[in-house]
């Protein structure tokens, strides 16, 4: 996968993810609509490939206004990943030197790998994650489960222990998926399924779409480093 192609696919996926996020604010108070209707228009232009460098810059500026409006991210980690991808695209579009473009896009790929690896690391060093208690807490009293019925999962310690270790091990071994094209594709499919289940059970739909938008960077990085793909 060439760098140009990877950047273009990222622009399309990011534009679609931003469009989905922005439309959710169309019925919000006027001061939110004023930020998100222009964002939806810019996202559409990004998908269509119209003046992508300037559109990315405008989206970064709008992103700063949105950060100011909500005094931080509206949606935690998904907003942070959104701004990270957008900033990398913006820089890659404006810096004409290929090597620097590669460094910037490589940084995005590195952050994607770290997003899984560090999440796995902080869990495995926590005894409550290792014995399944942390996931029990997620389902028993955290604000995330989308229905009361899902809270009954807290009463299945064996299942929660298995789920905890599946998540921890997958997140920790994710960097190793870079070894071959097959393992990377498998790793990304499993990761997407993980985000999909989080979206269904915990309501984190924005994470699913925005993490997908970062996947072209790691596919490109694998090709760049190992010549695979």
């Amino acid at each position: 996968m060439s760098l140009d192609f990877a950047i273009r696919i990222t622009e399309i996926l990011l534009g679609l993810a931003f469009l989905q996020q922005s439309v959710e604010h169309f019925r919000a108070p006027k001061n939110e609509q004023r930020l998100f209707i222009p964002r939806a228009v810019l996202s559409l232009l990004l998908v269509l490939g119209f003046q992508t460098a300037w559109v990315c810059l405008a989206l970064v500026m709008l992103g700063l206004f949105i950060l100011h409006r909500f005094q931080g991210p509206y949606n935690g980690g998904s907003d942070r990943m959104s701004l990270l991808i957008l900033s990398c695209l913006c820089l890659a579009n404006f810096i004409p030197i290929l090597q620097w473009q590669e460094v910037i896009f490589g940084y995005l790929a590195l952050q994607l790998v770290l997003s899984y690896f560090i999440s796995g690391w902080v869990k495995i060093i926590n005894p409550e994650w290792r014995n399944g208690l942390a996931l029990k807490d997620v389902f028993s009293f955290s604000a995330y489960p989308v229905s009361e019925a899902l809270r009954s999962l807290a009463n299945s310690p064996g299942l929660l222990w298995s789920m905890s270790w599946a998540v921890i091990l997958f997140e920790l071994i994710f960097p190793l998926t870079l070894i071959t094209q097959t393992t990377l594709v498998a790793g990304l499919v499993i990761a997407a399924c993980f985000h999909f289940s989080n979206a269904c059970m915990l309501g984190l739909n924005r994470f699913f779409w925005i993490w997908l938008a970062a996947y072209p960077s790691i596919i490109w990085l694998q090709y760049r480093i190992f010549g695979i793909g």
């Binding site: 992103g63 700063l64 950060l67 100011h68 005094q71 931080g72 991210p73 980690g77 907003d79 942070r80 990943m81 959104s82 701004l83 990270l84 900033s87 952050q111 770290l114 997003s115 560090i118 999440s119 902080v122 869990k123 926590n126 409550e128 942390a134 807490d137 997620v138 955290s142």
Partner: peptide
């Protein structure tokens, strides 16, 4: 400056999802 400070955790994220509940 305050807004740029809010941007920093996005550019250099910590990725400590659900480290403690």
């Amino acid at each position: 400056l305050h807004t740029l400070k809010l941007l920093l955790p996005a550019l250099i994220p910590s990725w400590r999802f659900f480290d403690v509940i």
